[in-house]
Design a protein around this nucleic acid. Structure first.
Lengths: 103, 103
DNA sequence: ATAATATGCAACCATTTAGTTGCATAAAAA
DNA sequence: TTTTTATGCAACTAAATGGTTGCATATTAT
C-alpha cells in the first residue's frame, strides 16, 4: 500500500519541517531546505532521501547544488485515504440515524 | 506537533488495516478488529495501543471484552495539514501565473 | 465447578531507524 | 590556482520498533 509509505514519511518532525518549507514554493537547495534542523548535514540528508523515496519530494542536480521541490500530487493520495475513512464513518452515522428515525 | 504522531501512527500496514476495519462503523472488540493480521495477538495489541496513544482509536472495557472505536475527529487534523500544504502550493502556482501574465 | 474466552503485563530478541563522524569530489568563488 | 561551498558515500552506534513467548486474571459459557 503506497499510502503507508506516504504516512510513514510524514511521521517525523524533521521531515514534516522540510515539507512545510517546500510548500511555500520558495526555491530551495538541499542545503537551504535542511538548514537549522538541529541535526547534522548527513542526518538531514537521510531524511530528505526518505522524502524522495516516498515520492513526496524531487531532486534535480543543477551544477554545484541540487534543487529540491515538492511533488504536490503525492499528497492527494494521503488526502484521499483520509477522506475515504471519513466518508465511510459518516455513512455509518447516517445509517445509524435512519435506524433511529424508523422507530 | 500532534500531527506528526498522527501520521506516524498511520504509517504501518497493520495499523492502517485496523483503521480501515473500524471505519466501516461495525462494532469491534480488540479480538475481532485484530483478527487475521498475521501477527500474534500481543503484536496486534501493541499496534492497537499505538493507535490509542495517538488518539485515533478509543477503547472501552465492557465486561470480558473491550469495545474498539474510531475517533473520527482526529483525522481532521491530518486532513487539515495536507490541505494546508496544498493550499500554500497552489498559492505559489497562482503567484507564478500572475508573474507570467504581467509580461 | 470447570472450561473456554478475552484480555493484560513483562521480558526478550532482531531489525530498522535516526543519528553521527570521516573522507572524497566537483563546481564556483577568490 | 587555491580555497570555499555543496554535495556524495560508507561505516558505525544507540535507541526505537515490530515482533515473539510465557504467564496471569477476570468474565462468560458449559
Amino acid at each position: 500500500m503506497a499510502v503507508v509509505e506516504l504516512f510513514r514519511a510524514l511521521g517525523d518532525p524533521n521531515r514534516l519541517e522540510i515539507i512545510k518549507r517546500l510548500s511555500t514554493g520558495k526555491p530551495y537547495t538541499i542545503n537551504t531546505v535542511t538548514s537549522g534542523l538541529d541535526i547534522s548535514r548527513q542526518g538531514a540528508r537521510k531524511h530528505l532521501q526518505i522524502l524522495v523515496d516516498s515520492r513526496l519530494v524531487m531532486l534535480e542536480t543543477k551544477g554545484r547544488d541540487t534543487r529540491v521541490s515538492l511533488n504536490q500530487k503525492r499528497f492527494d493520495e494521503g488526502k484521499a485515504f483520509i477522506l475515504d475513512i471519513e466518508r465511510r464513518w459518516d455513512q455509518r452515522l447516517e445509517a445509524l440515524r435512519s435506524v433511529v428515525e424508523s422507530d
